[in-house]
């Protein structure tokens, strides 16, 4: 499928539902991890040009903590777990039971803790997709960075760039009950993966 074509509404609904199931599992894992209620928003499926596809996530220059991993297997793609620094501080405090309030660099221990949290959550997102589609879907080793949102997300659009000027991004926001931790799960399937996902779920491709 060429990404320059528009998607049918049933296809978008299916992708939104995938986001729902994946993030649902991931937020449950997070809720268990910090023993707090997590509210998950309805996932959004954004399809558009690279330049403004990330607009709904905020300013390109906004500083974020991002755990990234490459999705490998039958439906390759890119997966992110993204937090503001304030939320990352709170999440670390919740998990480690100490008060963490950094405004610049994290220690190696804090970085590996955040990376592992991202790993667990995105892992549960992906394994629920694998269960649902019966496709082989694996995460790569995760990697964390703290940088500008635009710079972080453009890495995830390189594969789409080889097909066209559009990317499809499945985004879910979640909010911890007391609104202290807010984050996003973002799945950017490579264009070639979409047909496989639709096929596995019995959704008409044409």
């Amino acid at each position: 499928m060429s990404t320059s074509n528009k998607f049918k509404s049933i296809q978008l609904d299916v992708l939104q539902e995938l986001g729902n199931i994946g993030s649902g599992n991931a937020t449950t894992a997070l809720s268990n991890l910090i023993n707090k209620t997590i509210d998950m928003k309805v996932p959004r499926v954004n399809f558009g040009p690279f330049s403004n596809i990330t607009e709904s996530l905020g300013d390109d220059e906004k500083i974020v903590i991002a755990v990234y991993l490459r999705v490998i297997g039958e439906t390759p793609g890119n997966m992110y777990f993204i937090l503001s620094q304030k939320s990352a501080n709170q999440l670390l405090s919740d998990v480690l039971h100490i008060n963490i309030n950094k405004n610049k660099e994290y220690s190696d221990f804090e970085i590996s803790t955040l990376t592992e949290i991202g790993n667990i959550l995105t892992g549960s997102y992906l394994s629920s997709l694998a269960n649902l589609t019966q496709l082989k879907i694996y995460p790569s080793v995760p990697s964390l960075t703290m940088d500008m949102l635009g710079a972080v997300l453009s890495s995830g659009m390189l594969q789409c760039g080889q097909y066209g000027d559009y990317a499809l991004l499945i985004e879910t926001n979640f909010l911890e009950g007391n609104e202290k931790v807010e984050g996003h799960f973002i799945f950017i399937p490579d264009p070639e993966s979409l047909d496989k996902i639709f096929h596995a779920l019995g959704v008409p491709i044409q």
Binding site: F50, S51, D60, E61, G150, A151, S154, S155, M157
Partner: peptide
């Protein structure tokens, strides 16, 4: 991303979030 532009005489051209 994946755009270019040109300006003459005065002003600035900016691009954000280069990775």
């Amino acid at each position: 991303i994946a755009e270019f532009n040109v300006l003459k005489g005065d002003g600035k051209i900016k691009t954000t979030g280069l990775g």
